[in-house]
Nucleic acid binder design. Structure first.
Lengths: 243, 243
DNA sequence: ACGGATTTGTTCGTATGTATA
DNA sequence: CTATACATACGAACAAATCCG
């Protein structure tokens, strides 16, 4: 039973199909799906494969499974684009339906401060590539970004305009960002940054400090982002873990 | 092939065993586990069952699996106590090693505003039970809390001092909070709240607006919490989802 | 550079357990 | 009690990624 030239595996195709059926309205919120046996037969896959798809859909909050009752399309709008889902700033802005832009203020190799050495696990005398820039949404400045990358993974050519650091690292630097640990803070007013983001003393800034790790759990990017609080908020899905 | 009177399923037992082996030091961080075939044989379960256990352990960040290479005990300390893990304010304060306290400013049934009706899915004319209070850590005020609960799930007796809303609802209200959707915002200064929390115009507030849901996906608690930004920050584990 | 060995990923079929209506 | 539906479990086969000689 060969899959032929299929690059996407079957359970991913099932996930796509079910999501698509929800989008199109063929599957309604709250609706009960056919039993796993019937649905598997209808979709032409084994029950194991269907269950793998349903497991992931449940994890994503798309469906709810109840033992002995059935599987249902979730009534609630799924909490997309929460902060726990790692995306680049570019994606964040574009998901708002706006055009993401970039203005680079500074970009060069510099001597790291003690904190950088610690966070990025730098070797002695290793430099960091520092980028300071302003991100714009539909032309107006909304985020001030400081990115620090260990010198050994930065290719020789400097960073391009309008380029996501994510894409830049993955295309040029031969690393893949896998996850990040983030801390959310806030600051009332910053002499320099508030001015650049064109916001007055009344409107504070949200700060997202992130350490990004690659597939080998090595830190590859430390970034500090200042968001205009009147333009951004972060959403989180909080799960109960202790019984 | 009966499981006998086993109440805990096999894959859960495998999870327990592996976690225990890590605790005891028998399995070291970064160590490679035997191949799935060998390990399954050694543990006396099928590869399917072992994989189900490994899947969950990977989800929890305990192990890392690499296609074609093997499965490893995670080097990194698992990211505990991030904001995505739903805990009560009481727990948050106590995890900092401080004594959690409570000062109730207001508590009574009131007419809901339009937003409350929407968020809490209230019936016509249904009141909400509103609680305003200051949470203290080691005696000093750190969080200002506004909690709103639909009248029909609030028992007749009013809320006790020093009691967690979580515990209160679960003990008296016969509901179990399952998850919450949260939005993180910030505000520079609030005439009334900043004064109560004893912080000046310079230090902003972090705001956590949460809708809590019970096991049946019904909203049971809407709470707005104002945190002193110099005392609190939120951490999040951000996962990459799109290849 | 190639090929085989190893290891995890995917998929199938089937059987039995357990919760719910 | 019985039927239905999801949960757990086993065994087997092949695919895909990686590693090593």
């Amino acid at each position: 039973m060969s899959l032929g030239g299929l690059q996407r595996s079957r359970y991913l195709l099932i996930i796509d199909k079910i999501k698509q059926d929800i989008e199109s309205g063929y599957l309604q919120p709250g609706e009960k799906l056919p039993s796993e046996n019937k649905l598997a037969k209808k979709l032409g896959v084994s029950r194991t494969t269907l269950r793998e798809a349903l497991r992931i859909l449940e994890e994503e909050g798309v469906v709810v499974r109840r033992h002995g009752i059935g599987t249902f399309i979730n009534k609630k709008p799924v909490f997309y684009n929460g902060i726990e889902e790692l995306t680049s700033i570019t994606e964040m802005i574009e998901k708002e339906g706006k055009v993401a832009g970039n203005r680079i203020l500074f970009s060069d190799f510099v001597t790291p401060i003690a904190q950088d050495k610690d966070v990025l696990n730098l070797k002695d005398d290793e430099l960091v590539f520092l980028v300071k820039r302003v991100r714009t949404a539909d032309g107006s400045p909304v985020i001030y970004c400081i990115d620090k990358i260990p010198a050994h993974i930065v290719p020789d050519d400097a960073i391009q305009d309008n380029e996501s650091i994510f894409d830049f690292l993955e295309k040029e630097g031969d690393v893949t960002i896998n996850y990040a640990t983030a801390v959310i803070e806030t600051i009332g007013y910053h002499e320099e940054i508030s001015k650049i983001l064109d916001c007055d003393q009344e409107s504070p800034l949200l700060i997202l400090k992130q350490t990004h790790f690659d597939m080998n759990d090595q830190p590859v990017l430390y970034s500090i982002n200042f968001f205009r609080a009147d333009q951004f908020s972060f959403s989180v899905f909080r799960k109960r873990v202790n019984f």
